[in-house]
Write a protein that binds this DNA or RNA. Sequence first.
DNA 1: ATGACGATTTACT
DNA 2: GTAAATCGTCATA
Length: 224
Amino acid sequence: MMQNMAPLTCKRPKRSTLAQDPAAVAKWLLGQTIVRVLNDGECLAGTIVETEAYLGVIDQAAHTFGGKRTKRNQSMYAKPGTAYVYFTYGMHHCLNVVCGQLNEPVAVLIRALEPTQGLDTMRKNRQANPARKTRRLLKDHQLCSGPGKLCQALAIDRQMDSIDLLTSDSLLLVQSLYETLPDNQIVNTPRIGVDSAGAWALRPLRWYISDNCHISIRNRHLGE
DNA sequence: ATGACGATTTACT
DNA sequence: GTAAATCGTCATA
């Protein structure tokens, strides 16, 4: 568990940190913070606890497999530190951190956050469109425990696509004051929801913080 | 213009 | 465990 979080300071990562291969960045991002500043100035924040790397043109599970370039995925070709936000399944948004080099379409999907600031607003955002009538209060670990959930909680949609996470005032990546997590607190498994990607579905390109209860539901019991 | 398909979530048997 | 919800995006015509 990430307990006793330091008060939020605004140390921004260097762009060179994100200009690495997506697997390295995915691992590095664990423990860092995503901050969303709403129009009224309210801050919502969470610690990244689960990530997946998408390796671009060679990766059958990536939107840019084979060098595919469309209106939707063009921000994956942008400079490292750019947000790639896409809409899927007719109702969900997903947030990625573009990494690697300019024009090298690789990215890291942010799959789960441990919410640290603005939980009440997150709960409100998550229940804005209740699918079920009698919905009980969402527990903290239900707010950001999935790529679609965290975007709903932080009010992230395609308007945030192509934003620079290192300079933006509305959606920011903030570096932890702590050292990088030790390897024995990081679990590495295959990615979720990419079963149709052949052999690439089996590659261990997902990472999450061991024993953290805010990771996505699926595979919470697996791993190691 | 049309049809197939999701880097998901939720409810339900 | 299975299936429904729901629609932008993309490839094809």
